[in-house]
Amino acid sequence: MNVASKPAMGQATLEDRRSAKVSARDVDVFYGAKQALKSVSIDIRPNEVTALIGPSGCGKSTFLRCLNRMNDLIETCRVAGSIWLDGEDIYTSGLDPVLLRARVGMVFQKPNPFPKTIYDNVAYGPRIHGLARSRAELDEIVMTSLEKAGLIDEVKDRLQEQGTGLSGGQQQRLCIARAIAVSPEVILMDEPCSALDPIATAKVEELIDELRQRFTIVIVTHSMQQAARVSQRTGFFHLGELVECGETEQIFTNPRHKLTQGYITGRFG
């Protein structure tokens, strides 16, 4: 299956790699003795939304967390292979994970605002990285981030209230605002809408589409409809392997691989 799937994504040429924002080659991930990812190679283009889909436990979240080295935090986890960000290998080049994570932000499955005020939530990143030289500058960053996250109208009068007091959808957009406040280049989103109701989901999806102008976005989702709605490219994971990757439209209308077809037609999931 590994061999069979190669041609499907093997079209990722050197040309692709040069134009890619993030590119991964032969990434293996082990949790202890268990292999969670097998030889994953993919190119993620700038200013596009790349969706990673697949049944649960297929390794899509694991792969996402490799992109900003969040897997380092798990004692038993080991990553092999290479991942480049703008042509720089993030695992071997001595790139500081602290800096890496400032450039590759992350939004999580469940909204997880800090138990601080809305303002402090957004200001957290800029503060630790020393991005603002003055209070006014920090205010500016917070306001524009909230604005970009489409939250400003709802919270501008209550910046000093607890972030945990917002509704679920608002919390998630607050988390997005928090992530973009450090002006990352890439934003990783790990099933950002799975804990939200349909209306909040729609708002976040809209937001993702807007954010694409400025950021490169990788989103893991278990909802094929969501992938179809928000992404330009889609990768399909199955049992730790990237089975197929291509234009979203092509994946959903004309999948090359039988497994992909089975998944998107709902034969398994």
Binding site: E88, D96, V98, L99, I128, H129, G130
Partner: peptide, 15 residues
């Protein structure tokens, strides 16, 4: 790649 101010700040944070 990273400017000097960031580098200094980073060193301080790691310390």
């Amino acid at each position: 790649m990273i400017d000097e101010r960031t580098a200094r700040r980073l060193a301080r944070r790691h310390a």
